[in-house]
């Protein structure tokens, strides 16, 4: 019966493959050219500590050259959600069109049918996400070498979290669809829900997943180790008095650049609360597990609800 479940999922699987193909069509040529530019400009050697001015300029040029593309690919963070929701469609359509009246009265139990269908959708979601992660991780290599992996756009699509996101989206859609049994409404609601959860996750939840560290420094630029970190908040104190505070990277430091310039008031102390680059895998694993667990719970709910309540 796995043949049947695959066959009924065929359209959605092809659409998912199509999405991945489109992504590849965008990423592969640009990725190759970006990688070539990186090596051509010798930017690899510029990443050592204390690079010269020419390196800083070259890196800056490189980054601004690829800024637009970078911005576009940041939106790929939504693709796991699309994939997950899409792959829930066959399950919901079975309920909406009431074809379960056919398939639950052959000779298999409805429990088996529901389990196989959802499991297959889960495998497809994991597989598709894995392909997406591989593509984007490869594409991003030059940029992550320069800027680290903790910025939201990069973090969401490299590592393993995208798998968790896809499973969560799938589970959410399946759960809503099991109760509502209307595919268009359920899929839309699920995607909206996914989007909302992801915003909360990106800008708040992630920051809670590991205890952040504190950094202080005087004058000068941002210390090296903070270049690739995820800065949660910053503040400036002068003689122990808080002069300004802000969140994230740009903010405070930029506004008080003159305080950071050499020769300025040496009593200005910069503080930052941050998650270091080395937290990457810890965060990834915790977040993946969290989303996978919630997604799995939703899938179980969908299975149990369908089994008990649908006639």
């Amino acid at each position: 019966m796995t043949w049947l479940a695959w066959r009924l999922q065929r359209t959605e699987t092809l659409v998912a493959a199509g999405i991945l193909a489109l992504t590849a069509a965008l990423l592969v040529p640009t990725g190759i050219s970006m990688s070539e530019a990186f090596h051509h400009d010798g930017l690899g050697s510029c990443l050592a500590p204390n690079p010269g001015l020419s390196c800083v300029q070259k890196i800056g040029a490189f980054q601004s050259h690829y800024q637009a593309l970078n911005f576009v690919t940041n939106w790929f963070t939504l693709v796991p959600g699309v994939l997950g929701v899409l792959l829930a469609a066959p399950f919901i359509l079975d309920l909406e069109h009431r074809t379960y009246r056919l398939v639950w009265t052959q000779s298999i139990t409805r429990r088996r049918w529901v389990a196989v269908k959802l499991a297959l959708a889960g495998f497809a979601a994991v597989g598709a996400s894995a392909v997406l992660i591989a593509l984007i991780t490869w594409w991003r290599t030059p940029l992550t070498d320069i800027g680290g992996r903790l910025d939201t756009g990069t973090y969401d699509t490299t590592g393993t979290v995208a798998i968790g996101y896809a499973l969560f989206a799938l589970g959410l859609a399946a759960a809503i669809g099991a109760v509502w049994r209307r595919s268009a409404v359920s899929l839309t609601l699920a995607f909206v829900g996914y989007f909302a959860v992801r915003i909360v996750d990106d800008y708040w939840l992630r920051n809670q997943l590991a205890s952040p560290l504190h950094a202080t420094w005087r004058g000068g630029r941002l210390p090296d180790y903070l270049e690739k970190a995820n800065i949660l908040s910053q503040s400036i104190t002068v003689n122990g008095r808080v002069v300004d505070r802000g969140s994230g990277t740009g903010g405070v430091l930029g506004a008080h650049a003159q305080l950071a310039a050499p020769g300025s008031d040496r009593n200005a102390v910069f503080h930052a609360v941050y998650q270091p680059a080395s937290y990457f895998w810890t965060l990834q694993i915790r977040e993946t597990l969290l989303f996978t667990a919630v997604g799995a719970a939703c899938l179980v709910f969908a299975a149990v609800w369908t089994q008990r309540r649908v006639a």
């Binding site: 019966m1 043949w3 049947l4 009924l8 359209t11 074809t99 009246r101 398939v103 052959q106």
Partner: peptide, 18 residues
């Protein structure tokens, strides 16, 4: 009720496998 996107042969295959 039948699965509209399956062919007749595939529908019989459904019966055979289930």
């Amino acid at each position: 009720p039948l699965y509209r996107n399956l062919t007749v042969t595939e529908t019989l295959e459904l019966g055979r496998r289930l």
